[in-house]
């Protein structure tokens, strides 16, 4: 038996909206530690890793590990039937082929119950090695979203070069109408951590990425006020949105390599 009760349906809506365009179906892995998910996009260029720790739910019950194959787009549609502040309860029997979703209004005067069919999904689990990154940049998530959008829509760029030095982080593109760059400098004061740009750097690093994936990752912006970019030479970028202390959505993106 699996049961997980989440105080606000809104969180699950935001998570699904953040990942459903990149991966349309995935296995939710349920264990005593919580709910996790890993999936690559069909071109094997990017990967989503989700963790919702059990302590983010109250209660959380998992008698045995379960793998729930879910169509994320269908689940996102179903979650739209919940109001943002509805209490979400997910339940599944062991060996069940359905996931039950229950939405309860805060005043407890409305209860919606849905049964979602599960599917068998063959998915490879990728082992992601522990990496000491050359540079870790933390910035406001809205700023990252804005930069990706402006460089894509404004210049029509396909590839973005991200260069990180002690002075700042520079995003450059060359596109159909010309070229452009946006540089963020490290902020002096850290009175408001969520609004700060902080660069932790062991050595300067420059990498090239497909901009459209970064724009897709930015759909996770509502999940967190800040985002971190972890970069090392010739290894995948990690874009992480932390959900308070109860979990994260991480996106991995393979770099473009100079011929």
């Amino acid at each position: 038996m699996f049961e997980a009760r989440l105080a606000q349906s809104n969180l699950m809506k935001k998570i699904l909206d953040a990942i459903k365009d990149l991966i349309t179906e995935a296995n939710l892995e349920i264990s005593s530690g919580g709910i996790s998910l890993q999936g690559m996009d069909s071109s094997h260029v990017s990967l989503v890793a989700l963790l919702m720790r059990s302590d983010g739910f109250s209660p959380f019950r998992c008698d045995r590990n379960l793998t729930l194959g879910v169509n994320l787009q269908a689940m996102a549609k179903l979650m739209k039937c919940a109001s943002n502040d509805d209490i979400l309860t997910m339940t599944a029997e062991d060996n069940s082929d359905t996931l039950n979703l229950q939405f309860e209004s805060p005043a407890q005067d409305k209860l919606s119950e849905f049964e979602m069919k599960l599917m068998d999904i063959d998915s490879e689990h990728l082992g992601i090695p522990e990496t000491e990154y050359d540079a870790v940049i933390r910035m406001p998530s809205s700023e990252f979203q804005r930069i990706c959008r402006d460089l894509g829509a404004g210049i029509g760029g396909e590839s973005v070069t991200i260069a990180c030095t002690k002075e700042g982080v520079k995003f450059s593109v060359t596109g159909s109408v010309g070229s452009g760059s946006i540089t963020l400098k490290q902020t002096g004061s850290v009175d408001k951590p969520a609004e700060s740009v902080v660069i932790n750097m062991a050595q300067p690093v420059t990498l090239i990425f497909a901009l459209r994936y970064l724009n897709s990752f930015a759909k996770a912006t509502p999940l967190s006020e800040s985002v971190s970019l972890s970069m090392s030479r010739e290894v995948p970028l990690v874009v992480e949105y932390k959900m308070n202390d109860t979990g994260y959505v991480r996106f991995y993106l393979a770099p473009k390599l100079e011929d």
Binding site: V45, H125, L126, S159, A254, K256, E258
Partner: peptide
Amino acid sequence: TATQGRLDNFFTVS
């Protein structure tokens, strides 16, 4: 020009 890398080249299937 730059070639798009794939994650399979960086991560191992477990």
